[in-house]
């Protein structure tokens, strides 16, 4: 054994990838660029551009979330933690379930049925203009900064891994993401993130398999697993780190910062994730997506991002490789040792996938925030949708350029501003999370309470930076940093408690909005929300899906209309036979266009199988499941006909859903 090991000792790699690796990465980026840009043809309205027409299946949403959840720094950061602390490196990936009930049955139906398009818009409707202004000011700054922050991070990672200049990597990724996000909007983001999700899972698991094979020497892969496991001490094999030490990485700090504050941020105030869920075809599909992601994908992601560190730990201990000079280099050391030319490039392409998928999501989300919370309400009100659609594309391009500028600024003028952005995140997150949570789950929470929670919470967190001792009662025995005196993780718990205390106290002494004003915006009014979303009483009977051939006719069918039936549509628009003559939908009390659905017709038997009635909301999609809803539309059931297996719709409805002639449709009742 010792003789074998001696043969395996190699120098820690000092060189970077070879030309096949560069070819793999460049080809991958070009494929993603073309793939993403292709989806521009499916964005026919502003709502399509930002929410993909709310028509996608759970697996598409769930898989695309994989890439969004694994950030630009995840591979390097968690590999380093795995190398230093063992398998507890991934504990932040497996502590998200505790808030899922509030998300599945609270926040998700609230945002879906109330049709809010951004967090600040929710603040406007729940708390009023002051809260919205505060939220826009804070979130917009944070998000644009975050794009630059990620671009800078990826530049440093690319430099570290490939040896290329930081600015080359920053410009390349910003251009690739900027082009396909501007062309295809949310649909491009979802489909490219689907590809990137597969890419980073396969790349990470491939690295794990090759690394285990390397550890196994001439044995089976199970020998590699045994070698990895026996190399780790008991503390390194456990799923959690030590309770409260060292201060740089301990269980209690990670639990409160990632498991509580991070989970709340991810589920409740991430504009990018919110838009992803609003792109689902129904609330149930959103629930399936979060279930799939949290129960199955996050544990796999934990292995994907952390395994290089565990392997590196075993390889260094067994002498298979020299210890790297810096622990953060362990990912590239293991990747290059375990993978041959080309395969190393594939693993690096997986790393690029993690980088691009975060940036594309934030670019699209920031553009939505700008259009819906700044441009539409304050700069250009009441313009036609095609104007906002064009503005959305321009905003996406401008935001990509601004993010690029910030990334290059971080590169040129050092990392002080970079650190400031990290600190800004710790200031902003707890107060906004508290305002959203109390707004969604406590009817008595007042507009004054929300503003006080945000401003007071930020003030308290600022105080903790000046007087770190105020965090000590929340520290669970964690000692502050020796140099700065700051508590690295526990400020999150302190910020949440302070913000909640201020918000609740102020609310108890101020006047809440009336129940009518907040109907549909807090958890106790979901039945009202569903009724308003549908435009009639919800139908909760569970029916079956039916398959139907599409027939184009205007007999009893309409294009998109706010009417609940064909007769009502005729009464509303007696002179509008041609689609082009349709009047724009009137606005509701929140200044949003009222929901419009095409009226389509099924046979009486088909409606009975779906347990649907005239006026119910249906989801009609191309029967090919693997399209994930790309060719689909929400429709309203019209008067029944007598031809089983046939769905009648207008030419306009057919075109809007991007259906293909001759292809059958699959139909299900939603509400």
């Amino acid at each position: 054994m010792i003789h074998l090991l001696a043969q395996e000792v190699v120098e820690a790699p000092k060189t970077y990838g070879s030309w096949p690796d560069y070819v793999v990465i460049i080809v991958y980026m070009l494929v993603i660029l073309g793939f993403g840009s292709f989806f521009g043809r499916f964005a026919k309205s502003t709502r399509d551009f930002f929410f993909s027409g709310s028509k996608f299946s759970w697996w598409l949403i769930g898989m695309s979330m994989v890439a969004t959840g694994v950030g630009s720094h995840s591979f390097v950061k968690y590999a380093q933690k795995g190398y230093e602390h063992g398998m507890s490196s991934g504990m932040s990936y497996m502590n998200d379930w505790f808030f899922i009930p509030l998300f599945m049955f609270g926040w998700l139906p609230i945002i879906y049925f109330s049709r809010v398009r951004s967090i600040p818009e929710y603040f406007q409707r729940r708390f009023g203009t002051v809260a919205r202004f505060l939220a826009v000011f804070l979130i917009l700054q944070y998000m644009v900064g975050y794009i630059g922050f990620n671009l800078f991070t990826l530049g440093t990672v690319a430099h570290q891994v490939l040896g290329i200049d930081i600015w080359v990597a920053i410009v390349a990724i910003a251009v690739v993401c900027g082009v396909y996000v501007t062309a295809g909007g949310q649909t491009a983001v979802i489909f490219t993130d689907l590809a990137q999700g597969f890419m980073l899972l396969i790349g990470g698991l491939l690295l794990f398999a090759l690394g285990l094979d390397r550890l196994a020497l001439d044995g089976a892969i199970t020998d590699g697993i045994a070698a990895l496991w026996t190399n780790l001490s008991l503390a390194e094999r456990l799923p959690f780190a030590h309770f409260n030490e060292p201060q740089s990485f301990n269980f209690i700090g990670v639990f409160w910062q990632d498991g509580v504050a991070g989970s709340l941020m991810f589920l409740f105030i991430s504009q990018g994730l919110m838009m992803r869920f609003l792109a689902a075809k129904s609330v149930n599909e959103g629930r399936k997506a979060i279930l799939f992601n949290t129960l199955f994908i996050l544990p796999i992601s934990m292995i994907v991002v952390g395994n290089a560190g565990w392997l590196g730990n075993a390889m260094v201990d067994t002498g298979a490789v020299d210890a790297p000079e810096e622990a953060r280099d362990i990912f590239v050391v293991v990747a290059e040792l375990a993978c041959g030319p080309g395969v190393f490039g594939f693993v690096l392409a997986a790393l690029s996938a993690a980088l691009m998928s975060t940036i594309d999501t934030y670019t699209n989300a920031t553009a939505a925030l700008f259009i819906y919370d700044v441009y539409q309400p304050y700069i250009k009100r009441g313009a036609p949708d095609r104007h906002y659609m064009r503005s959305a594309r321009i905003a996406s391009a401008v935001i990509a350029v601004v993010g690029l500028g910030i990334g290059l600024y971080f590169m040129t003028f050092g990392t002080d501003l970079y650190k400031i952005h990290g600190m800004f995140q710790s200031f902003v997150t707890p107060p906004i999370v508290v305002a959203v949570l109390l707004g969604a789950f406590w009817r008595r929470f007042t507009p004054a309470g929300a503003v006080a929670a945000m401003l007071g919470g930020m003030l308290c967190i600022w105080l903790s930076k000046v007087f770190p001792g105020v965090v000590a009662p929340f520290a669970h025995g964690v000692v502050p940093d020796g140099e700065t005196g700051q508590y690295m993780y526990m400020t999150a718990l302190y910020g949440l408690v302070c913000s909640a205390f201020i918000g609740v106290t102020v609310s108890l002494f101020t006047k809440p909005k009336t129940p009518e004003q907040i109907a549909g915006l807090w958890v106790g009014t979901m039945d009202f929300g569903m009724k308003r979303f549908k435009g009639g009483k919800p139908n909760h009977a569970v029916g079956k899906k039916v398959k139907a051939n599409i027939t184009i006719t205007s007999d009893g069918t309409t294009g998109p209309t706010i009417a609940l039936s064909f007769d009502e549509h005729q009464a509303m628009f007696p002179d509008s036979d041609a689609p082009a003559e349709r009047k724009p939908a009137p606005f509701d009390e929140h200044g949003q266009p009222k929901p419009e659905y095409s009226i389509v017709r099924f046979s009486t038997d088909d409606l009975q199988r779906m347990k649907a009635e005239e006026g119910d909301l249906l989801y009609v999609s191309d029967a090919r499941w693997w399209l994930g809803g790309l060719r689909s539309s929400h429709c309203r059931a019209g008067k029944p006909h007598d031809r089983n297996g046939v769905v009648m719709m207008t030419d306009e409805a057919f075109e809007l859903a991007s259906f293909v002639k001759g292809r059958p449709a699959r139909v299900e009742k939603l509400l």
Binding site: F98, F99, P101, P239, F240, H242
Partner: peptide, 12 residues
């Protein structure tokens, strides 16, 4: 301790 703390506090 971490296991007992996470699943004790773990809100649900």
């Amino acid at each position: 301790w971490p296991y007992l703390y996470q699943y004790g506090i773990g809100i649900f």
